[in-house]
Design a protein around this nucleic acid. Structure first.
Lengths: 122, 122
DNA sequence: CGGCATCATTTACGCGTGTAAACATAATTG
DNA sequence: CAATTATGTTTACACGCGTAAATGATGCCG
């Protein structure tokens, strides 16, 4: 089953640093999210059930480690969107943003560089 | 409120052709989706409540027209994903797909052309 | 050892979703 | 006009999600 948005917030913390205890995760995420301890625990348990994280006892508490990688998650999410909206391909998405004038200078520069590099690797 | 995935399937039909009656929408979407009439009716009613479509009486039935445009919807969805996963910018998404070797020849060719055109418009 | 503190696990609850049955209403036809 | 048909509207229900309270278990301290 797919992991939800709130769950992804927890994963984000773990992707930055792991293993972490529930308390440490709360400390990272509580201020921005205004979550209580129980909320984080619930999310962690759902992530456990989905085998997106692994828990390992550390004395009285658990330390959580991601099993699902960020690359994997990003890939799933992005592919889902591309499939639903752009026939599964990247270029049409970029074209869409281009038409909406939503490409920044920086985007354009980076895209140029990227294509250049693709060239270079012969 | 955002429109859901099942609702988007109905919208998709209406974006291709409108106005359409519930029955016509069902005919378009039923085979692929295995939906009953009631399902489509419910989705249409939720879309009405969300003011994503407009209904206009046509004798005994209604004809439905999209109010939300496809461009708008695509924009919202795409921006959502970019914001959540790529710091709101397009280039990092393309970079991600590039790293995962998920850019097709066609994608690359189209991206080239796109950048070329951006150049040309001075 | 028994009670408090510390974690984790379970249960809860309102809300949206996917899916559809039940019900209402209005037109059609015998 | 009454029964049937065609539509639309309301209600339902299980499930995941966001959020958290209630409960359970475990180790520490006096």
């Amino acid at each position: 089953m797919a992991i939800s948005e709130a769950e992804a917030v927890v994963m984000d913390v773990l992707w930055r640093e792991a293993p972490l205890s529930a308390e440490e995760i709360l400390a990272e995420v509580g201020p921005a999210q205004n979550w209580q301890e129980g909320t984080v625990k619930s999310l962690l348990n759902r992530l456990l059930r989905k085998t997106a994280v692994h828990a390992e006892r550390d004395g009285r508490r658990y330390l959580y480690t991601p099993l699902l990688t960020r690359e994997n998650y990003v890939q799933q999410e992005s592919k889902g969107l591309l499939d639903r909206l752009f026939g599964g391909r990247v270029a049409p998405l970029v074209a869409h943003f281009s038409e909406q004038r939503k490409l920044s200078k920086k985007d354009i520069a980076e895209l140029r560089k990227l294509l250049q590099e693709l060239d270079d690797e012969h």
